[in-house]
C-alpha cells in the first residue's frame, strides 16, 4: 500500500466518522434548543481578520466600572492598559477623569505607617496610571465575608478561564449494545466540532459563556428547584449561582419589558467583549501580524516546493 493509498483510506475513515458525527450533531441541535445552551455569538474579534471594537470596549469598561467593580478586581491590569493600543484606547485626559475618584492603599508613610493613627483605617492615596485595578476588598476573607461566603473571582483572565464544552458527555447509553454506536457518534461529532473550530478559529468560548451567563438569570427558580439564597441561572453549572443578577434577569413574555431585555443583552455583550480584551490584550496585534506571517509562509512553501521539484526533476524516486 502506497502512501497515497494509506492517506486515502485515512480520509475515508475520517469522512465516515465525520458523517456519523454530523448526523449525531444534527440530532443534538434539534433537541438542544433550551435555555442552558450557550450559543456561539458573532464577535468583532473572531476570525482571521477580527479586531476589537473600541467603542464596544469603552461601553464594556463602563459596565465593569459601574457594576462589576463593586465586587470584582482586575488585578493583572493597570489603568494605563485602558489607553494602550489595541484596547479601548481612552485618551490620557479621559483616563485621568476616569480614575480621578479611584484610590489605592498608600505605601507606608514617613513614620512607616499604613493605617491611620486616629481610627485605624487604611491610609489611601489617589490612583496612578501604573496602579492595578484592584479588588475593592482588602483580602480574600473580607471579600468572602461581604458576599455570604462566596469569593468574587478576579476578572483579569476570566474570558480565557471559561469556555463551552465541545461535545456533551453521554456515558450512559440506553442499552449496552448501543454503546459502540453512541461512542462512534460522539467521536465523530467531536471530530466535526474540532474541524469547525479550526475553520472558524474559534477562541471566543469565554466571551460566549459570559454573555450567556449574564443573560440567563431567571427571575425565580423554576418550580421544584431550590437554590437557597442563591440565584437561578440557566447556563451556570449546577444552576445555583452566588452572584445575584448583576445586569437584570431574563424576561419572558412580557411585551413591556422588551426595552429592558434589549439593554440587558447589549450590556452583557459589551462587558463580555471588554473582558475578552482584558484576557487577550494583544489580540489585534496578534491577528494582524498572523495574517502577514501566514501569507509569507504559504508563499515560501510554494517556492520551496518549486525548488524541491526542480532539484528532483529527472531523478527517479
Amino acid at each position: 500500500m502506497s502512501v497515497k493509498n494509506t492517506l486515502a483510506s485515512f480520509a475515508v475513515a475520517l469522512t465516515v466518522f465525520g458523517g456519523i458525527g454530523m448526523a449525531g450533531a444534527a440530532e443534538k441541535a434539534g433537541e438542544h434548543h433550551d435555555k442552558s445552551h450557550v450559543e456561539r455569538q458573532n464577535w468583532s474579534f473572531s476570525g482571521l481578520l477580527g479586531s476589537y471594537d473600541k467603542a464596544q470596549l469603552k461601553r464594556g469598561f463602563a459596565v465593569y466600572n459601574e457594576v462589576c467593580s463593586a465586587c470584582h478586581g482586575m488585578n493583572l491590569l493597570s489603568w494605563r492598559n485602558l489607553m494602550e493600543e489595541g484596547g479601548p484606547e481612552f485618551t490620557k485626559d479621559e483616563l485621568k477623569a476616569l480614575i480621578a475618584e479611584k484610590e489605592v492603599p498608600a505605601e507606608p508613610n514617613e513614620e512607616g505607617l499604613t493605617h491611620s493613627d486616629e481610627d485605624g483605617s487604611r491610609l489611601m492615596r489617589a490612583a496612578l496610571f501604573t496602579d492595578r485595578m484592584l479588588s475593592p476588598y482588602a483580602n480574600k476573607k473580607a471579600a468572602m465575608a461581604a458576599n455570604a461566603g462566596a469569593l468574587p473571582p478576579d476578572l483579569s483572565v476570566i474570558a480565557k478561564a471559561r469556555g463551552i464544552p465541545h461535545v456533551a458527555d453521554n456515558s450512559e447509553p440506553s442499552a449496552w449494545y448501543a454503546a459502540p454506536f453512541v461512542g462512534l457518534m460522539e467521536y465523530g461529532s467531536w471530530i466535526v466540532s474540532v474541524a469547525k473550530d479550526v475553520t472558524t478559529q474559534y477562541q471566543e468560548g469565554g466571551a460566549d459563556y459570559i454573555y450567556a451567563l449574564l443573560t440567563s438569570y431567571a427571575e425565580e427558580a423554576p418550580a421544584g428547584v431550590d437554590v437557597g439564597d442563591r440565584s437561578f441561572n440557566y447556563v451556570f453549572p449546577g444552576n445555583a449561582i452566588s452572584m445575584a443578577a448583576p445586569l437584570g434577569t431574563l424576561e419572558t413574555g412580557a411585551e413591556a419589558d422588551k426595552e429592558a431585555n434589549k439593554e440587558l443583552h447589549a450590556k452583557s455583550r459589551d462587558v463580555a467583549a471588554y473582558l475578552m480584551w482584558a484576557s487577550e490584550p494583544h489580540l489585534n496585534a496578534r491577528k494582524s501580524l498572523g495574517l502577514k506571517v501566514l501569507i509569507y509562509l504559504i508563499i515560501l512553501s510554494g517556492l520551496m516546493y518549486a525548488v524541491k521539484r526542480t532539484i528532483w526533476a529527472g531523478v527517479k524516486h
Binding site: 509569507y296 509562509l297 515560501l300 517556492l303 520551496m304 518549486a306 525548488v307 526542480t310
Partner: peptide, 16 residues
C-alpha cells in the same frame, strides 16, 4: 531559470 528560482527562494527565506 533555475538559478533565479534558487536565489529568489533563498532571498525570500532570508528576509523572513
Amino acid at each position: 531559470r533555475r538559478n533565479f528560482l534558487y536565489i529568489g527562494t533563498g532571498a525570500f527565506a532570508s528576509v523572513g
